[in-house]
Design a protein around this nucleic acid. Sequence first.
DNA 1: CGATTCTGCGCAAACGTTTGCGCAAATTAT
DNA 2: ATAATTTGCGCAAACGTTTGCGCAGAATCG
Lengths: 341, 341
Amino acid sequence: MTTIKDIAQQLGLSAATVSRALAGNARIPETTRDRVQALADQLGYAPNRAAQSLVGGRTSGFAGLVLTDPGYGREDSYLGEYISGLGHGLAETGIDLFLAAIPQGQSELSVIRNIVTSRRADGLILGRTSEVDPRVDYLITAGFPFVTHGRVLSDALPYSWVDTDGTAAFAEAFDLLYALGHRRFALLTIEEAMTFRHHRTEGVMQAMERCGDPSVTLTIATSPRYDPARRVQVVRDLLTADPRPTAILAMFDSLALNVLHVAESLSLSVPRDLSVIGYDNITSAAMARPGLTTFDTDTFSSARDTGRMLVERIKSPDADQQSLLIRPKLVLRASHGPAPA
Amino acid sequence: MTTIKDIAQQLGLSAATVSRALAGNARIPETTRDRVQALADQLGYAPNRAAQSLVGGRTSGFAGLVLTDPGYGREDSYLGEYISGLGHGLAETGIDLFLAAIPQGQSELSVIRNIVTSRRADGLILGRTSEVDPRVDYLITAGFPFVTHGRVLSDALPYSWVDTDGTAAFAEAFDLLYALGHRRFALLTIEEAMTFRHHRTEGVMQAMERCGDPSVTLTIATSPRYDPARRVQVVRDLLTADPRPTAILAMFDSLALNVLHVAESLSLSVPRDLSVIGYDNITSAAMARPGLTTFDTDTFSSARDTGRMLVERIKSPDADQQSLLIRPKLVLRASHGPAPA
DNA sequence: CGATTCTGCGCAAACGTTTGCGCAAATTAT
DNA sequence: ATAATTTGCGCAAACGTTTGCGCAGAATCG
């Protein structure tokens, strides 16, 4: 309600001087600065963001995140942790996070384009990156600051990213289960060409090749999006195959928890008949019985780092791109064990 | 990048006409409107939000939500569902949600004050309402549109809210367990004077009084905030009391899951030795073994309704306050059963 | 045919802030 | 002493949009 003009008037100054005083301009003596600041505090003055952002293409003070439907059932604690982390990473520098839902009938890309052209945000965060990602292409050509959580496949593209090292993790998971005697492996994956699918699959492949054991088999089962019933069916088919795989690596925890459930309904004992390992360590992973062995990716911290990185990009758009690859930590619980005889 | 002036120039019109044409003003003939719209689409024009919001105290197009730390451990799927719901409720009308984290050393109230005075949002959503809530008082006197998710205790205050009927639910939970023969009840509650604590406690009290059975006992145990170890200790004390309560009503699911865990570590069998009922139906509640009997509050939908209600308030600030009390649905799983002999 | 109404559009002000330029007074240097 | 610099501040433009007012020309009415 109070504007810079109110302060100026009450102090017998001009708006320009008040603006400079509040900005800490050196040309304004400290005595004046103090007077202005005091009155501003007393009046509870806060600059009108719209006016600030209007002048000279300045910052709007917002970083945007487009809410997409993951489509594989509730992602559990993931989104909440992610958003909290982002918010905190950004808040340190006074930038707020804004969330754009995708209106009926629009594409995510069109929402992003709209945000960029309407200057509603100073930067964007992109989640759920796919191998070839039109959003990344667009934002690079638009010269708009952004950071992705996850990579794209091409590493020729200039952009900043934070990701978890799914390749290393899935190789580690394979090695762990191989050492426990497992030979019939299955990888439960997803339909879409998300980049993490590529990397995590790669990890399993590499580890399999490295161990060089010809008796190892790997089945790849694809879990459909948007269709819980068929999702269950795929797992059921996998677990009733003959011979049944004894080691299941799931792309992420909610898929792994599906496996646990189906196994229960088939009266298969985990980990006696079947070992299951997930990825992300969502809270349900700890609650499930048996507790799910998985990889902790510290979603909160990595989201916070993503937020910080975005702030960097907004502040110095011409600086070099940064990237951060986080090594997930194996969390040993009760869903894995020695291969059945 | 493209402004209304660019369009005006290319079409040989004035900015005013273009603005009116895009707004669908009746004084502009359809032919002109179409020409303008076509070029706007072609150029990918989106109005600069800052400029829009500057003129005439108009809308900024944002609704704000302040991120607070619940303090009782990860809230699991709750925050994610809530935010998704809010986002969708708002997106229907083109309003975006923005999240403000609380910077180090600031209070939530000061963050809210700042949002209001800087006109960064057109309306606010308040979660985690307490019995007497200074945020509500402030926003009412400031005349700023807001909707709370949860109530305050006084019903003399003019504000709009969405809440779940914890009183009814907890009475129902009591009745259910009473009918199963339970007589020694415990209510696991929280330290702070959140309004939901009042209502849920009230529900138990009312049901207890209504049944009029003098043999019923109720222990109230308080779970501390920010301290997981003490949280476990409180539950442990509760479960090792002599005589031990056989029916535990927990204020919300994550507390109930704590009980399940401690019970497991004490080799108590749920539901044979102990019945546990939670509230909210977070995803972990379904994953836990035994599955947690709880109340589904349909967080996504109620958050969506909260968003819609806020849009109403922003659009017609002088309309009557609205409120919405949602009756949670009991979800029967395996964590409750007949009282032990 | 003159008077009135309607149609299509433009002018200019306003929203609140920042910032380049400039100007007078005070201070310092010569 | 005058000249040069510094200090403290104001003027005015600019950001992109909306909107009240007004003005021509066309259409309609009596």
